[in-house]
Amino acid sequence: MSRTVYLNGEYLPETEAKVSIFDRAFLMADGVYEVTSVLGGKLIDFAGHARRLERSLAELDIKKPAAFGDLLEIHRKLVDLNDISEGLIYLQVTRGAPGDRDFAFPDPETTEPTLVLFTQNKPGLSDNPVAKKGIKVISIDDIRWGRRDIKTVQLLYPSMGKMMARKAGADDAWMVEDGFVTEGTSNNAYIVKDGKIITRNLGTDILHGITRAAVLACAREAQMAVEERPFSIDEAREADEAFLTSASAFVMPVVEIDGASVGTGTPGPVAGRLREIYLAESLKAAL
């Protein structure tokens, strides 16, 4: 069955939704996006995603879509129209299609952005069996641009990183810059040592993860020690546990880095407990 998607004010069958070949996302990767999880038919961390979207648009001087104030209603309608119990809603805003191809972009106030939303049905998202066995990651050089705090659609290198991991028999890659882990290809990275959760501090070199913020809040509420600072791959290999967070993986244990087992080589208690707490608290606050 064809999905119903949202495009610039219309709900359409996915086969009928069309975007101009001159849209700057297609020509220049000139756009931003968000992904919101759906559990039990409700939206997880929607307010955080909306705030980050607004920030990304402002940082790139992209005009907010006219429907920005209706995004919650649009998300809910897509959940209903596509009968999503567990899954994801992808949202993308681009600078639009102002005319012919040009490096310079026009006055943001005179260019209408393109707004696209679509759903992905993913039954079993919350009870993912992978979380019970953990995943393997490799390390790769981080050669992305310097504004990783903006959630842009420039995802070629992260995509290449995932393919590097697959070729190496792993599940994902952690990127390393100047000797320290920045983040995963589509997630934030963490280690646990002597009961303390360690993750890179916020800045322009990592995405300010919405799930990251919620998980760290859960950790502190549960009286877990948290330290926000860079850590190296060598430090990660010597950790007791490692894990990652994202809107689709929630809290995912990492049991191997570059072929070396982390801790016992099995998911640890801190990651497991955080996953339980995060899912329980998120469902309570879901919209």
Rank of each mutant, 00 (worst) to 15 (best):
residue 199 T to A: 10
residue 49 H to R: 01
residue 248 S to T: 13
residue 149 D to F: 04
residue 255 V to H: 06
residue 46 F to R: 00
residue 237 R to G: 08
residue 157 Y to L: 14
residue 275 R to T: 02
residue 79 V to R: 00
residue 18 K to A: 10
residue 242 A to R: 09
residue 89 I to N: 05
residue 132 K to T: 12
residue 28 M to Y: 15
residue 92 Q to Y: 11
residue 106 P to M: 04
residue 15 T to V: 13
residue 200 R to C: 01
residue 61 D to T: 10
residue 261 S to L: 11
residue 264 T to K: 07
residue 184 G to K: 10
residue 4 T to W: 07
residue 224 M to N: 12
residue 66 A to K: 10
residue 19 V to C: 12
residue 220 R to T: 15
residue 263 G to P: 04
residue 48 G to N: 10
residue 256 E to H: 05
residue 61 D to R: 12
residue 118 F to H: 15
residue 78 L to N: 00
residue 152 T to V: 07
residue 260 A to W: 07
residue 70 D to W: 00
residue 196 K to E: 14
residue 240 D to H: 09
residue 113 P to R: 05
residue 170 A to L: 08
residue 139 S to C: 13
residue 152 T to I: 05
residue 267 P to G: 10
residue 164 M to C: 07
residue 204 T to S: 15
residue 138 I to G: 08
residue 228 E to V: 05
residue 22 F to Y: 15
residue 3 R to T: 02
residue 73 E to C: 02
residue 129 P to G: 13
residue 90 Y to K: 08
residue 15 T to I: 04
residue 83 D to L: 05
residue 30 D to Q: 09
residue 216 L to F: 00
residue 184 G to N: 11
residue 194 D to K: 12
residue 188 N to M: 04
residue 126 S to T: 13
residue 242 A to D: 01
residue 260 A to C: 10
residue 207 L to E: 04
residue 234 D to G: 09
residue 76 R to G: 02
residue 158 P to Q: 13
residue 98 P to N: 13
residue 76 R to N: 02
residue 282 S to L: 00
residue 171 D to I: 06
residue 113 P to V: 01
residue 2 S to I: 10
residue 13 P to L: 12
residue 44 I to M: 14
residue 115 L to C: 04
residue 244 L to R: 09
residue 237 R to C: 04
residue 93 V to F: 00
residue 128 N to T: 14
residue 148 R to C: 14
residue 15 T to Q: 11
residue 208 H to K: 11
residue 279 L to F: 04
residue 31 G to I: 06
residue 92 Q to D: 09
residue 9 G to F: 15
residue 60 L to D: 01
residue 75 H to R: 04
residue 122 K to Y: 02
residue 104 A to T: 08
residue 246 S to G: 15
residue 96 G to E: 01
residue 192 V to Y: 05
residue 252 M to I: 11
residue 183 E to D: 07
